[in-house]
Nucleic acid binder design. Sequence first.
DNA 1: GATGAATGAGAGTTCATTCAT
DNA 2: AATGAATGAACTCTCATTCAT
Lengths: 211, 211, 211, 211
Amino acid sequence: MEKTRKSGTTSPRLSREESQARTRERLIETATRLFVGQGYGGTSIRDIAEQAGYSQGAFYSNFESKESLLLEMLRRHMAGEAAHLATLSERAGTSLETVLDDLEAWASTLDQDINWSMLSIELQMQAQRSTTFAVAYRAVWQQHRDALAVWLAQLFAAHGLQPPVGIEALAASFMALAHGLALQRASTGTEVSGRMMVVLLRGLLAMARPA
Amino acid sequence: MEKTRKSGTTSPRLSREESQARTRERLIETATRLFVGQGYGGTSIRDIAEQAGYSQGAFYSNFESKESLLLEMLRRHMAGEAAHLATLSERAGTSLETVLDDLEAWASTLDQDINWSMLSIELQMQAQRSTTFAVAYRAVWQQHRDALAVWLAQLFAAHGLQPPVGIEALAASFMALAHGLALQRASTGTEVSGRMMVVLLRGLLAMARPA
Amino acid sequence: MEKTRKSGTTSPRLSREESQARTRERLIETATRLFVGQGYGGTSIRDIAEQAGYSQGAFYSNFESKESLLLEMLRRHMAGEAAHLATLSERAGTSLETVLDDLEAWASTLDQDINWSMLSIELQMQAQRSTTFAVAYRAVWQQHRDALAVWLAQLFAAHGLQPPVGIEALAASFMALAHGLALQRASTGTEVSGRMMVVLLRGLLAMARPA
Amino acid sequence: MEKTRKSGTTSPRLSREESQARTRERLIETATRLFVGQGYGGTSIRDIAEQAGYSQGAFYSNFESKESLLLEMLRRHMAGEAAHLATLSERAGTSLETVLDDLEAWASTLDQDINWSMLSIELQMQAQRSTTFAVAYRAVWQQHRDALAVWLAQLFAAHGLQPPVGIEALAASFMALAHGLALQRASTGTEVSGRMMVVLLRGLLAMARPA
DNA sequence: GATGAATGAGAGTTCATTCAT
DNA sequence: AATGAATGAACTCTCATTCAT
């Protein structure tokens, strides 16, 4: 499979692997768009393949099943979020204002990337129904929550404060709020910006006692 | 199925309307249970009718379509929530502790009545997909948000405080949080209790400036 | 379901049940024809429904699955064969010539009813692949073999002869021969009549020792 | 898959033709195994290629189509059986016991080589469906029957007996019985050994009149 | 000669909905 | 009002086969 792939010098045409990677990429893009717009259950493989410009068979050359495509999306989702959180954590020791700006920036990313938010909710709904998927989803979710918890812990510690509730419950709540807002935006069109998260965090800091 | 068969001659009280109301009621109950467990898309009318002990035709004698059943549910959901909010509002003027206890009580209702929470999310997902439904959903949602906003306004006013952000955004955020937590509970099994809402509200009060 | 079915006096139209029975019958007839001609695997439900003049859905209103249709066929096959064997057994005590004529008559039934023979082979092939089906098939097959064995035992006893091999093995062999001849006829067009069975039985009687 | 990759420089003996022959051989072996276990229709080319350690394309480099592979199998089947019959015929003039032992040996070969038996039935089923295939099958089948008929004729002649029915019908019947028994064994698990053939032949000899 | 991604047709099955009874 | 057989469209998925590499 990877034997003769030195690809010469310029390669005016796509090699086999490149071509398949492209197909796969297009299918994922199309599927993401459709899942967001019509939901996982409301999107057929026919739709995905057709809109991506391929046959249904092409889908099955690239993914084992509809659910395995969703798992692939979950993996990518995870990778993206992990990167965000890493950035957040890196700067957790600096001034409070900087840190809260970082949070707001992250939150507004969620706001803008409505796709990911809705997809994330699709993922959660699917997790409720498929055991296979639930296991995978839970693992990813815990990783996120833990990373966020670490960041929050650093934040409170840096200001000599004691969090008013368990740090993991706090992290979970922020994630819940982000998802809830995304759902609300999608279903009612209301724009309650990610700023709310900053406001709430400020409130928590305001009420916290010294450690 | 064989319950009202003998009523022909002797039971003048279970009139046709009452009998149909009963059918309707049972269909709604069964449908709620199934939607919560398997989702709107994952539940067939055959399932609903069968489990309720009727035929598919009986369903269509009572509802125009699958979606119109969901609209009926939405109406009932609304009525229930309105009642809750009314209670909450009634006592908004009393001591802070009482009021926060009320909030926590309401929040824990959401916690316990996982059925309604999940159904509520199903409703939101459906609102994203069906224009008909979206219009109805938005109206109901705004009523809720406004009632909650009024309650929050009373709360801040009673303590001579100025809310740190628009009162409607605040109300919307609390609803988003409630839904996000329900979704989280369903998909990850995590129990971050409705207490978080009280904690956050305390934080907001702690950071608020005098009016 | 059976409540108001007194059917009056003449019923110019088909009642609900009659109408469905008709549909079911037509589907089975069509399916038999197609299975015989193109095999079980080679016949699609689409084909069956279309050729019978119904929708695919109608098929599923009448049968749970493709295999359950085959099971229904097996049941009918069994009933038919059982009737044949009963007739055979009834007259087992009469003169040898009569009895052998009966056997030949039965064998030539197999000959002529090529449909059943080929279907029977389809059933056997399916039994090799589906566990569900194998269990059902084995039960039916054993019943047949036992009935045939009883008949053969009566035959040998009536002439004071001792069968040269176990009576059940003998019965099984006759069934195998009947199926093998059917298969041969279908695949090569060769007409080796069911008379062979009579010839072989005569041979067995000729070589048998007194009991 | 990785076996012949190093042969580039040092192995002048595994020529292209030999290498291809090897591929072909492995595909046939694997296909035989799979057809027997899952049937012709139940076996995909993907399965065959994968299990043999090749790509689907390799299959099509070696065979025109799925059916042409089956034709190749038929050819080999024929060759093998022809060899058996030749051995049988060679010794047809010796004592009756020897000859019947030979028959039983052949029959038990069929018994043991359940693979060939089931494949043979697959071939017959396919012959019923494909005209191309049917023509080829019929030719092979007639050759077999004729060879067997010659052997039977020699047998009767050697004992100065006159066969009770046409010698070709007799041969066809024995083949039918062999196939029927194989089918029975596969579908019901019943072991009615090939000894039955010997018993029946003895019966025929017992009832035969002098020539 | 061998690869395997992609095709296109078709498989079995499900489902919201209709309508004669 | 209630029945449930029948519809017709859509579903996920499989497969023999093709063809650029």
